[in-house]
Nucleic acid binder design. Structure first.
Lengths: 155, 155
DNA sequence: CTGCCATGGTAAACGCACTTTACCACAAGG
DNA sequence: CCTTGTGGTAAAGTGCGTTTACCATGGCAG
């Protein structure tokens, strides 16, 4: 069944809103939109789990284990994702000489195209938000979020 | 395997950061923390998927179908969650007389306790963020996020 | 009244993706 | 050597969401 999404249009007061919902809802909206537009732009094979790899700052040059760590999943799960993305032609995994079994992930041309597309989508979203909020408030938002990002609170 | 999480401490410049990552990372951090502290506070059975039900504004008084819709999952998936939560003693589903097959979800005492605990955790998180950012910037953050929430951009 | 359909809910089967458990390869250090 | 740490892989098991299908009630057209 295709899931329809409709939000409750209930009269919610600002005072009731906690930071959890305030962050979660727009973050999810962005996530869904990225996947949707990515699929429409010709990257149809990319599914939700793949996003764990393509997330900022991207997998290029990284080790599988490191990618697993920052995505918060096991190395094995990451490995499955990487195998999938490799068979789809988005990445390659190459050996690193004189480094034991170490491997390194590289984006292919197609992989770079997909990653660039995500960037484009986000830029467009930023444009829309800026139009909604005004440049000043939007800049403030990013600034404050960046402070949180840097702090240990985001861990 | 227990998944360890460690963030890259790479020197990232604010200019590179797009709103996607800026929102996602703290939102995920909050989500993980809620589940973790909920489990520690004696609600050990609650798992990630259950959060789709306990999410703001909570399930009390709502129909299963409506809950499914706002969680973005199918009615069947929501039903499984509700059955699980019912068998764990967090909710009950009662019939609504003269309303067809309609059912209504009610939090039990334990369910209300869990929901209140989530509220407490979020309040504590807000306290910490306010200490980090200062009351003024924190209020600004919530205000701006609330504007986005109200706009169609969050859909 | 009665047959049809819209609405809301449920059940079973399937499939994907993650974890668990286990193992392999190489390097460094005693 | 043998051990330990690091990095990666493989296979089995499982949890959870979708797909497919069906059931129950109420409204409504004829």
């Amino acid at each position: 069944m295709e899931v329809k999404r409709k939000m409750t249009k209930s009269p919610i007061k600002p005072a009731e809103m906690l930071i959890g919902a305030l962050l979660r809802v727009p973050a999810q909206a962005i996530h869904r939109r990225i996947i949707h537009e990515l699929n429409e732009a010709g990257f149809e094979e990319l599914r939700v789990p793949h996003m764990a790899v393509l997330q900022f700052p991207g997998p290029d040059g990284a080790r599988p284990g490191a990618l697993a760590e920052r995505a918060g999943i096991s190395k094995q799960a990451m490995n499955q994702l990487l195998r999938s993305l490799e068979s789809l032609g988005y990445i390659v995994r190459s050996d690193v000489p004189n480094k034991g079994r170490a491997r390194i992930v590289r984006l292919t041309r197609r992989g770079r195209a997909a990653y660039a597309k995500i960037h484009d989508i986000l830029r467009e979203i930023e444009r829309e938000w800026m139009a909604e909020l005004g440049p000043r408030r939007f800049a403030e938002l990013k600034e404050i979020l960046f402070l949180i990002w840097q702090s240990p609170l985001a861990r």
